[in-house]
Design a protein around this nucleic acid. Sequence first.
DNA 1: GATGCTGTTCTGGG
DNA 2: GCCCAGAACAGCAT
Length: 258
Amino acid sequence: MPEILEVEMFRRSASLVIGRTVKSVTATDRIVVPEPAAVRMLVGRRITDVTRRGKMMTIHAGPARDPLAIDVHFGMSGRIIVDGSSPIDELAYGASDDTKWIRFALRFASGEMLLSDPRRFARVQPSSAWAGLGPDAFEVGKREFIDRVGARRAPLKAVLLDQSVLAGLGNMLVDEILLRAGLDPRRLVNTVSPTELGNVHAVMRRVLPELARKGGSHAGRLSAELRFAGAACPVDAHPMDRCVVGGRTTIFCPRHQH
DNA sequence: GATGCTGTTCTGGG
DNA sequence: GCCCAGAACAGCAT
Protein backbone atom coordinates (compact mmCIF):
# COMPACT_ATOMS: atom_id res chain seq x y z
CA MET A 1 0.00 0.00 0.00
CA PRO A 2 2.56 2.63 0.88
CA GLU A 3 3.81 4.77 -1.95
CA ILE A 4 6.12 7.75 -1.61
CA LEU A 5 3.51 9.93 0.15
CA GLU A 6 2.75 7.37 2.84
CA VAL A 7 6.43 6.58 3.39
CA GLU A 8 7.09 10.29 3.87
CA MET A 9 4.38 10.34 6.56
CA PHE A 10 6.05 7.33 8.19
CA ARG A 11 9.42 9.09 8.04
CA ARG A 12 8.00 12.12 9.81
CA SER A 13 6.53 9.91 12.53
CA ALA A 14 9.76 7.99 12.89
CA SER A 15 11.78 11.17 13.23
CA LEU A 16 10.12 11.65 16.64
CA VAL A 17 12.65 9.17 18.01
CA ILE A 18 15.70 11.12 16.86
CA GLY A 19 17.88 11.72 19.91
CA ARG A 20 16.62 8.68 21.81
CA THR A 21 18.86 5.75 22.71
CA VAL A 22 17.74 2.25 21.76
CA LYS A 23 17.10 0.10 24.83
CA SER A 24 16.06 -3.06 23.04
CA VAL A 25 15.31 -4.46 19.59
CA THR A 26 12.63 -7.03 18.89
CA ALA A 27 13.22 -8.77 15.56
CA THR A 28 11.82 -12.26 15.65
CA ASP A 29 10.38 -12.52 12.15
CA ARG A 30 13.01 -13.98 9.84
CA ILE A 31 11.16 -12.91 6.73
CA VAL A 32 10.76 -9.25 7.62
CA VAL A 33 14.12 -9.09 9.43
CA PRO A 34 16.40 -11.58 7.66
CA GLU A 35 19.54 -10.51 9.57
CA PRO A 36 18.39 -9.99 13.15
CA ALA A 37 21.91 -9.92 14.62
CA ALA A 38 22.88 -7.01 12.39
CA VAL A 39 19.74 -5.09 13.31
CA ARG A 40 20.23 -5.75 17.04
CA MET A 41 23.46 -3.76 16.76
CA LEU A 42 21.17 -0.77 17.25
CA VAL A 43 20.97 -1.52 20.97
CA GLY A 44 22.75 1.15 22.98
CA ARG A 45 23.00 3.54 20.05
CA ARG A 46 21.36 6.93 19.73
CA ILE A 47 19.10 7.59 16.72
CA THR A 48 20.61 10.49 14.79
CA ASP A 49 18.37 10.84 11.74
CA VAL A 50 15.59 9.24 9.70
CA THR A 51 15.83 9.77 5.95
CA ARG A 52 13.90 8.60 2.91
CA ARG A 53 14.47 7.98 -0.78
CA GLY A 54 11.45 6.86 -2.77
CA LYS A 55 9.70 4.19 -0.73
CA MET A 56 12.81 3.37 1.32
CA MET A 57 13.20 4.78 4.82
CA THR A 58 16.57 4.69 6.56
CA ILE A 59 17.17 4.90 10.31
CA HIS A 60 20.58 6.33 11.17
CA ALA A 61 22.24 5.74 14.53
CA GLY A 62 25.48 6.88 16.15
CA PRO A 63 28.12 7.11 17.29
CA ALA A 64 29.74 9.31 14.64
CA ARG A 65 32.95 7.28 14.60
CA ASP A 66 31.00 4.03 14.00
CA PRO A 67 27.57 4.83 12.58
CA LEU A 68 24.92 2.24 11.75
CA ALA A 69 22.12 2.64 9.21
CA ILE A 70 19.11 0.37 8.84
CA ASP A 71 16.79 0.37 5.81
CA VAL A 72 13.06 -0.10 6.26
CA HIS A 73 10.87 -0.94 3.26
CA PHE A 74 7.16 -1.17 4.00
CA GLY A 75 6.08 -3.52 1.22
CA MET A 76 2.34 -3.62 0.59
CA SER A 77 0.94 -3.63 4.10
CA GLY A 78 3.59 -2.21 6.40
CA ARG A 79 3.08 0.84 8.56
CA ILE A 80 4.80 2.49 11.45
CA ILE A 81 3.52 3.18 14.94
CA VAL A 82 5.49 5.58 17.14
CA ASP A 83 4.64 6.02 20.81
CA GLY A 84 1.27 4.40 20.20
CA SER A 85 0.07 6.34 17.19
CA SER A 86 0.35 5.94 13.43
CA PRO A 87 0.01 8.61 10.74
CA ILE A 88 -2.18 6.18 8.83
CA ASP A 89 -4.89 4.43 10.77
CA GLU A 90 -6.42 2.48 8.00
CA LEU A 91 -4.51 0.76 5.26
CA ALA A 92 -6.07 -0.84 2.25
CA TYR A 93 -5.41 -4.57 2.09
CA GLY A 94 -5.30 -5.37 5.71
CA ALA A 95 -3.95 -3.73 8.79
CA SER A 96 -5.58 -3.72 12.13
CA ASP A 97 -4.02 -2.71 15.41
CA ASP A 98 -3.62 -6.35 16.32
CA THR A 99 -0.25 -6.73 18.02
CA LYS A 100 0.33 -10.02 16.25
CA TRP A 101 1.30 -8.06 13.14
CA ILE A 102 4.23 -6.33 14.86
CA ARG A 103 7.31 -7.65 13.07
CA PHE A 104 9.96 -5.27 14.38
CA ALA A 105 10.22 -3.00 17.38
CA LEU A 106 12.65 -0.49 18.82
CA ARG A 107 12.09 0.35 22.49
CA PHE A 108 13.54 3.38 24.19
CA ALA A 109 13.69 4.48 27.81
CA SER A 110 10.54 6.32 26.90
CA GLY A 111 8.36 5.24 24.00
CA GLU A 112 8.77 2.82 21.12
CA MET A 113 8.74 2.48 17.35
CA LEU A 114 6.82 -0.47 15.93
CA LEU A 115 6.55 -1.89 12.42
CA SER A 116 3.20 -3.55 11.78
CA ASP A 117 2.98 -5.69 8.66
CA PRO A 118 0.27 -8.35 8.24
CA ARG A 119 1.48 -9.61 4.89
CA ARG A 120 5.19 -9.66 5.76
CA PHE A 121 6.33 -8.02 2.53
CA ALA A 122 8.20 -5.40 4.55
CA ARG A 123 11.97 -5.65 5.03
CA VAL A 124 14.26 -4.31 7.74
CA GLN A 125 17.95 -4.78 7.06
CA PRO A 126 21.37 -3.13 7.16
CA SER A 127 21.39 -0.21 4.75
CA SER A 128 22.62 -0.68 1.23
CA ALA A 129 22.99 3.09 0.93
CA TRP A 130 20.06 3.21 -1.50
CA ALA A 131 22.05 1.34 -4.14
CA GLY A 132 19.94 0.71 -7.20
CA LEU A 133 17.37 3.39 -6.43
CA GLY A 134 16.84 6.21 -8.91
CA PRO A 135 16.42 9.82 -7.80
CA ASP A 136 13.55 10.59 -5.44
CA ALA A 137 10.34 11.64 -7.20
CA PHE A 138 10.03 14.74 -4.99
CA GLU A 139 13.52 15.92 -5.82
CA VAL A 140 14.26 14.98 -9.40
CA GLY A 141 14.72 17.89 -11.79
CA LYS A 142 13.08 18.13 -15.19
CA ARG A 143 16.26 17.58 -17.19
CA GLU A 144 17.26 14.46 -15.25
CA PHE A 145 13.70 13.12 -15.37
CA ILE A 146 13.51 13.42 -19.15
CA ASP A 147 16.97 11.90 -19.59
CA ARG A 148 16.36 8.92 -17.31
CA VAL A 149 12.79 8.07 -18.33
CA GLY A 150 13.41 8.75 -22.01
CA ALA A 151 16.38 6.39 -22.10
CA ARG A 152 14.12 3.35 -21.82
CA ARG A 153 11.89 1.55 -24.31
CA ALA A 154 9.22 -0.08 -22.18
CA PRO A 155 5.64 1.21 -21.82
CA LEU A 156 5.56 4.63 -20.14
CA LYS A 157 3.82 3.31 -17.05
CA ALA A 158 6.29 0.42 -16.60
CA VAL A 159 9.18 2.88 -16.71
CA LEU A 160 7.59 5.23 -14.16
CA LEU A 161 7.06 2.26 -11.83
CA ASP A 162 10.70 1.17 -12.13
CA GLN A 163 12.34 2.25 -8.88
CA SER A 164 15.80 2.18 -10.46
CA VAL A 165 14.68 4.87 -12.92
CA LEU A 166 12.76 7.00 -10.45
CA ALA A 167 12.16 6.18 -6.79
CA GLY A 168 8.77 6.59 -5.18
CA LEU A 169 5.88 6.16 -7.60
CA GLY A 170 3.52 3.18 -7.26
CA ASN A 171 0.52 1.92 -9.14
CA MET A 172 -2.00 4.49 -7.90
CA LEU A 173 0.21 7.53 -8.34
CA VAL A 174 1.29 6.58 -11.84
CA ASP A 175 -2.31 6.14 -13.00
CA GLU A 176 -3.20 9.48 -11.43
CA ILE A 177 -0.28 11.31 -13.04
CA LEU A 178 -0.89 9.86 -16.52
CA LEU A 179 -4.62 10.63 -16.27
CA ARG A 180 -3.77 14.28 -15.60
CA ALA A 181 -0.98 14.40 -18.17
CA GLY A 182 -3.30 12.93 -20.82
CA LEU A 183 -0.87 10.20 -21.83
CA ASP A 184 -1.62 6.56 -22.63
CA PRO A 185 0.16 4.35 -20.06
CA ARG A 186 0.79 1.70 -22.74
CA ARG A 187 2.75 4.01 -25.04
CA LEU A 188 6.36 2.96 -25.51
CA VAL A 189 8.39 5.62 -23.80
CA ASN A 190 10.70 6.06 -26.80
CA THR A 191 7.68 7.36 -28.73
CA VAL A 192 6.96 9.98 -26.07
CA SER A 193 8.53 13.35 -26.89
CA PRO A 194 10.78 15.24 -24.47
CA THR A 195 8.10 17.92 -24.31
CA GLU A 196 5.51 15.36 -23.25
CA LEU A 197 7.91 13.88 -20.69
CA GLY A 198 8.53 17.38 -19.39
CA ASN A 199 4.80 17.71 -18.93
CA VAL A 200 4.68 14.42 -17.01
CA HIS A 201 7.40 15.81 -14.73
CA ALA A 202 5.44 19.03 -14.20
CA VAL A 203 2.25 17.10 -13.40
CA MET A 204 4.13 14.86 -10.99
CA ARG A 205 5.68 17.80 -9.18
CA ARG A 206 2.19 19.31 -8.80
CA VAL A 207 0.35 16.10 -7.85
CA LEU A 208 2.72 14.90 -5.12
CA PRO A 209 2.35 17.90 -2.79
CA GLU A 210 -1.36 18.15 -3.57
CA LEU A 211 -2.09 14.54 -2.60
CA ALA A 212 0.26 14.78 0.37
CA ARG A 213 -1.94 17.62 1.59
CA LYS A 214 -5.12 15.66 0.92
CA GLY A 215 -3.93 12.61 2.81
CA GLY A 216 -2.14 10.23 0.46
CA SER A 217 -2.01 8.23 -2.75
CA HIS A 218 -5.70 7.36 -2.57
CA ALA A 219 -6.83 10.99 -2.53
CA GLY A 220 -6.46 11.73 -6.23
CA ARG A 221 -9.06 12.36 -8.90
CA LEU A 222 -8.80 8.69 -9.85
CA SER A 223 -10.07 7.48 -6.49
CA ALA A 224 -10.54 3.83 -5.58
CA GLU A 225 -14.24 3.99 -6.49
CA LEU A 226 -13.31 4.86 -10.08
CA ARG A 227 -10.79 2.07 -10.55
CA PHE A 228 -12.95 -0.16 -12.72
CA ALA A 229 -13.64 -0.41 -16.44
CA GLY A 230 -16.62 1.71 -17.44
CA ALA A 231 -16.31 4.23 -14.61
CA ALA A 232 -16.76 7.82 -15.77
CA CYS A 233 -13.41 9.52 -16.40
CA PRO A 234 -12.98 12.34 -13.87
CA VAL A 235 -11.59 14.53 -16.67
CA ASP A 236 -14.13 14.08 -19.49
CA ALA A 237 -16.68 11.54 -18.20
CA HIS A 238 -15.90 9.07 -20.99
CA PRO A 239 -16.03 5.43 -19.78
CA MET A 240 -12.58 4.33 -18.67
CA ASP A 241 -10.72 1.20 -19.77
CA ARG A 242 -8.87 -1.32 -17.68
CA CYS A 243 -5.81 -3.25 -18.78
CA VAL A 244 -2.54 -4.62 -17.43
CA VAL A 245 0.69 -2.67 -17.97
CA GLY A 246 3.98 -3.63 -16.38
CA GLY A 247 2.14 -6.38 -14.59
CA ARG A 248 -0.17 -3.98 -12.80
CA THR A 249 -3.86 -3.25 -13.15
CA THR A 250 -4.18 0.01 -15.02
CA ILE A 251 -7.15 2.34 -15.37
CA PHE A 252 -7.07 4.96 -18.10
CA CYS A 253 -9.35 7.07 -20.28
CA PRO A 254 -9.22 6.01 -23.95
CA ARG A 255 -10.62 9.36 -25.05
CA HIS A 256 -8.18 11.85 -23.57
CA GLN A 257 -5.07 9.76 -22.80
CA HIS A 258 -2.97 9.32 -25.95
C1' DG B 1 -14.08 -20.87 -2.60
C1' DA B 2 -12.03 -17.87 -6.03
C1' DT B 3 -10.04 -13.60 -7.15
C1' DG B 4 -7.43 -9.48 -6.63
C1' DC B 5 -4.26 -6.39 -4.40
C1' DT B 6 -1.14 1.30 -3.15
C1' DG B 7 5.34 -3.83 -3.83
C1' DT B 8 9.54 -6.26 -5.00
C1' DT B 9 12.22 -10.01 -6.80
C1' DC B 10 13.21 -13.98 -9.35
C1' DT B 11 12.86 -17.14 -13.36
C1' DG B 12 12.23 -18.42 -18.01
C1' DG B 13 11.77 -16.90 -22.58
C1' DG B 14 11.56 -13.77 -26.75
C1' DG C 1 21.36 -6.65 -22.54
C1' DC C 2 16.42 -5.24 -22.57
C1' DC C 3 11.86 -6.36 -21.69
C1' DC C 4 7.88 -9.15 -20.40
C1' DA C 5 4.78 -12.49 -18.23
C1' DG C 6 4.14 -15.19 -14.45
C1' DA C 7 5.07 -16.79 -9.99
C1' DA C 8 6.21 -16.18 -5.30
C1' DC C 9 5.82 -13.94 -0.93
C1' DA C 10 1.01 -13.68 2.78
C1' DG C 11 -3.21 -12.01 4.59
C1' DC C 12 -7.51 -9.97 4.01
C1' DA C 13 -11.54 -8.09 1.54
C1' DT C 14 -15.04 -8.82 -1.81
